[in-house]
Simulated assay, not measured.
Amino acid sequence: MRSHLVTYRVPVNTHDGDARRPPFNAAAARRLREALGMTHAHVAYGIWAAYGIQLHPATVASWELGESAPTEAELTALAGALWCAPAELLGTPGTLREYRLALGLAPADLALRIGMDQTTYERLEGGGPWRGTERQAAALAEALRLPLPALLRFTGQEEQLAALLTSAATTRWQGYVRPVGKLAPLPKERLQDVLQQLHEEYHATMTASLSWTGGGAPDESGKAGRDFLDGIVMEFWRRAGEMEPPR
């Protein structure tokens, strides 16, 4: 990565519900427990013995039924009791916190790896803006094995990418190969192909929408164009072969 990252201030990590409780794959927890021949009591005892967290077996059962979900600490302990990685008990990660949990890293450990103060990192994970450096961004991507789209999202650069792609699609795409490449360091030929495709499809969409209405409904044409541009970042990643796993 060559771009400077300090100035972007877009919130990148919001949560629904109780932020202490990560998304939980109840079916996976039950499947893993049964494969080990363990009862809910066995799991509860294993969590207490290894992690000092006291749980009733009924709590473990309620997790598997989807009636409740473990906290971050409980999920880590459950993974230990079931001899699996935390990622196996999570859905596909979507937030920065979920990527960290999937690898079983504590906030302090990750902050140390990327050379960031723990308080600053936790503020980012809680929804604050990215205030890190280029080097810290690269370290974050390596530590969490982040796909490129996720990295740009978490470092607050997605809006800038959207603005560049919009200009490339609506004006002369050739002038945007280099600035887009600074944000998304992909092979130049691939970038050129994707930007040209987006440019051509945008103008084809505008032309087609006018044809459908006999050329007399510019509002319809504008709506079709806006709809295309609203999804241009996702379309860019899809055509570039860099999509994140579905969440």
Score class of each variant (00 low, 15 high):
residue 128 G to K: 06
residue 111 A to E: 00
residue 147 P to S: 07
residue 125 E to S: 09
residue 130 W to G: 05
residue 65 L to G: 01
residue 121 Y to I: 02
residue 178 R to Y: 00
residue 199 H to Q: 06
residue 195 L to H: 08
residue 94 G to A: 07
residue 166 T to Q: 13
residue 125 E to Q: 13
residue 119 T to V: 12
residue 184 A to C: 15
residue 85 A to K: 15
residue 182 K to W: 08
residue 168 A to G: 10
residue 104 G to W: 05
residue 126 G to R: 14
residue 67 E to F: 13
residue 96 L to N: 10
residue 121 Y to M: 05
residue 72 E to I: 04
residue 116 M to G: 08
residue 157 Q to H: 01
residue 166 T to Y: 09
residue 70 P to N: 06
residue 153 R to T: 15
residue 95 T to Y: 00
residue 126 G to K: 12
residue 112 L to V: 12
residue 180 V to F: 05
residue 85 A to P: 01
residue 156 G to R: 00
residue 177 V to E: 04
residue 121 Y to K: 01
residue 107 P to W: 00
residue 189 E to I: 12
residue 78 L to P: 15
residue 151 L to H: 11
residue 169 A to I: 06
residue 134 E to V: 03
residue 91 G to D: 02
residue 152 L to C: 10
residue 103 L to V: 04
residue 196 Q to R: 15
residue 85 A to R: 15
residue 97 R to Y: 02
residue 145 R to D: 01
residue 191 L to Y: 12
residue 129 P to I: 04
residue 83 W to N: 14
residue 132 G to C: 06
residue 130 W to I: 12
residue 151 L to V: 10
residue 108 A to H: 06
residue 113 R to P: 03
residue 72 E to D: 02
residue 115 G to N: 03
residue 111 A to Y: 01
residue 86 P to Q: 02
residue 127 G to W: 09
residue 186 L to D: 00
residue 145 R to Y: 12
residue 69 A to P: 00
residue 159 E to T: 12
residue 83 W to M: 13
residue 161 L to Q: 09
residue 118 Q to T: 09
residue 193 D to Q: 15
residue 124 L to F: 08
residue 183 L to N: 09
residue 74 E to W: 13
residue 106 A to L: 13
residue 128 G to Y: 00
residue 120 T to Y: 00
residue 86 P to L: 05
residue 136 Q to T: 10
residue 95 T to K: 03
residue 63 W to I: 03
residue 99 Y to W: 06
residue 71 T to M: 04
residue 74 E to P: 08
residue 62 S to H: 11
residue 124 L to D: 05
residue 111 A to V: 08
residue 97 R to A: 01
residue 143 A to Y: 03
residue 102 A to R: 03
residue 82 L to E: 05
residue 111 A to C: 07
residue 82 L to D: 07
residue 112 L to C: 10
residue 109 D to C: 03
residue 150 A to H: 13
residue 67 E to A: 14
residue 115 G to A: 04
